[in-house]
Design a protein around this nucleic acid. Structure first.
Length: 576
DNA sequence: TAGCCTTGCGCG
DNA sequence: AAAGCGCGCAAGGCTA
């Protein structure tokens, strides 16, 4: 690495023998280019990172960063071309999307590890969508320039810069979360399973307590061979003994009075634990004291992360006790109180709702304002407003919120109306909802034709309402996801600046780039878990809180709203 | 027998 | 059977 001006950006691309690097100045003008052999790549990147702290531009974060992390190289900033392409291509804030939209090769699905990919992935007729984004430097540079132009040409370029930076930072976090893993105590998990399901039995037989529950169900059904795992068969068995339900869901069963109900609900609960997070899950997903789920940034239309494998987004609260810090380490478990209503208050500029949220539980604040009588009512009403409830208690309470918080409610009502009319809506930073499908539009025009049937009209109206509820929620859920990305990105930086502990106090199972300092270990929409040496736990907890305040300012400036956190420092993630 | 669909339930 | 959004996953049943 020779003497050269500091590049603001470095574009990376694959070559046959390693990587091509393109050095760009702050205007994204190229002023240098080099080829690095594969064996030297991580050390070159490491040195460039410490010398210049550039923003790395690459086609797809997991395909570059996983390997760097494995070799102990951490970077501060990147620009993920695939993720940013998806945002800019659809954003209503971009005035001229044609160039980005034309670059179809960047419409790539999230990368899936070769070992996890099903063979069919490459046989489908929409193969180009799954082919992955181009990985050579010239293609990356060209796409980067297109994206820069798209952002620069926007009247809201500051928001789009923030969004693309946050999305890219999220991609780094996702790779780091996978590399670090969530500390998981397999023995504690096993104890929970044995305690709940009973002793494991050989030969694939059901564990003791589960089998006992099954026997009680069969006794109540008067049928020793009744099948409990097949919905149609179970339904017929229930009908035979006079339990006339239409489904076998918990909600409907719970309303029935019959000796079979209690053991059946018990059986379903235990059976669910066994199949979703039993010993099979444990041996498949927990290795060497870590649960390493695959996070998929931007995997949900709203901008939330999805996950692939391991059910990272569905870990039952029941198992939280198995999340356990390494010896001498602690967990900082933090979640945001009522994130979405707070985000709604901020983005709509509703000072009355912000006032209700100040210094307290937001739902309590709504009660104190006199809009509704109880906290439970406030919660049901607020969720109903954000999800589009029209019936039941929720639908009945929403109008009271409309009177008390017209600006906030006006924002979601407008989003719903736009969606019903076939329009698109955008989050605070500019992520934009997909346009309606051709089928949806066809159904709407069909309903306006002179010979449209009543069924045509009913269907069109139902689909319009469905879409209205989607766009109503999109703006809130999507902006909440943006806030959470900003929180994560800021927190990641703060944790990296905390002091290391000596190597012998490290958490070697967390991977070389994290082993000796506080690091993120889990993220779920509005919650983070940080794994930290005990002596830095307070500093890490402070970082979590400071990052939340920082994220609020980054998105909403001086708007008087706090994002309250519930922060706990403990050895397990068990909720008290 | 593979692949798709439905049901049900876990999470926010 | 949730009312009212967004997901992933396992299991059974159906179909080609």
């Amino acid at each position: 690495m020779g003497a050269t001006d500091a590049p603001a950006w470095i574009v990376l691309g694959r070559t046959d023998h390693g990587a091509a690097v393109v050095l760009l100045d702050a205007n994204a003008d190229e002023f240098g280019r080099d080829e690095i052999g594969g064996a030297d790549l991580s050390s070159w990147i490491s040195e460039a990172e410490s010398r210049w702290a550039p923003r790395w531009v690459w086609h797809d974060t997991p395909q570059w960063y996983a390997e760097l992390l494995a070799e102990g190289v951490r970077i501060a900033r990147c620009h993920d071309l695939r993720l940013c392409h998806a945002i800019l291509r659809d954003s209503a804030l971009v005035a001229e999307t044609a160039a980005v939209r034309r670059a179809r090769q960047w419409d790539a699905a999230p990368h899936v590890d070769a070992e996890e990919a099903a063979p069919t992935l490459f046989e489908l007729d929409d193969a180009p969508r799954n082919a992955g984004a181009p990985d050579d430097a010239d293609a990356a540079l060209a796409e980067f320039v297109r994206q820069r132009d798209a952002v620069a040409g926007s009247a809201e370029s500051a928001r789009l810069r923030l969004l693309t930076a946050a999305e890219s930072a999220g991609a780094l976090v996702a790779a780091e979360l996978r590399a670090a893993g969530l500390p998981w105590d397999a023995d504690a998990h096993d104890r929970i399973l044995v305690e709940t399901l009973g002793e494991r039995r050989p030969g694939g037989a059901q564990p003791v307590k589960l089998a006992a529950a099954a026997e009680r169900v069969r006794a109540a059904l008067g049928d020793p061979s009744a099948s409990l795992d097949s919905q149609p068969k179970l339904l017929r068995s229930l009908h035979r003994v006079g339990v006339l339900v239409e489904s076998t869901s918990r909600w409907e069963l719970a309303e029935q009075r019959h000796p079979v109900i209690e053991p059946l609900l018990e059986y379903k609960k235990l059976s669910r634990l066994l199949s979703a997070n039993g010993w099979t899950w444990l041996s498949e997903w927990v290795a060497d004291g870590r649960f390493r789920p695959v996070y998929v940034p931007g995997g949900v239309v709203t901008g939330r992360w999805a996950s692939s494998g391991g059910g990272a987004l569905q870990l039952p609260r029941q198992l939280r006790e198995a999340v356990r810090a390494d010896p001498g380490w602690r967990l900082v478990v933090a979640d945001v109180a009522q994130l979405e209503p707070r985000v709604l208050a901020a983005m709509s500029g509703d000072t009355a709702l912000a006032a209700a949220a100040r210094g307290r539980d937001l739902y309590t604040g709504i009660v104190d304002s006199g809009a509704v009588a109880t906290r439970q009512e406030a919660k049901i009403a607020m969720l109903g407003a954000m999800y589009g409830a029209t019936t039941g208690e929720s639908g009945r309470l929403v109008p009271r919120l409309r009177r008390a918080y017209p600006r906030a409610m006006g924002l979601v009502d407008d989003a719903a109306r736009t969606g019903e009319d076939g329009g698109i809506v955008s989050t605070w930073l500019g992520r934009t909802s997909p346009a309606p499908s051709a089928e949806w539009s066809a159904a709407q025009s069909r309903a306006t034709e002179a010979d449209a049937s009543g069924a045509d009209e009913t269907r069109a109206r139902r689909w319009a309402r469905d879409r209205g509820r989607f766009t109503r929620n999109f703006v809130v859920q999507g902006t909440a996801a943006e806030w959470a990305l900003a929180w994560l990105a800021d927190l990641r930086g703060r944790l990296a600046a905390l002091p290391e502990v000596p190597a012998e106090r490290g958490a070697p199972r967390s991977g070389p780039a994290f082993a000796c300092r506080p690091h993120l270990a889990f993220f779920l929409h509005d919650e983070v878990i940080v794994h930290t040496p005990a002596e830095h736990a307070d500093a890490a907890a402070q970082a979590v809180a400071d990052a939340a305040a920082s994220a609020g300012r980054l998105l909403f400036g001086d708007f008087p709203l706090e994002f309250r956190l519930d922060v706990r420092v403990a050895e397990t993630a068990l909720k008290d």
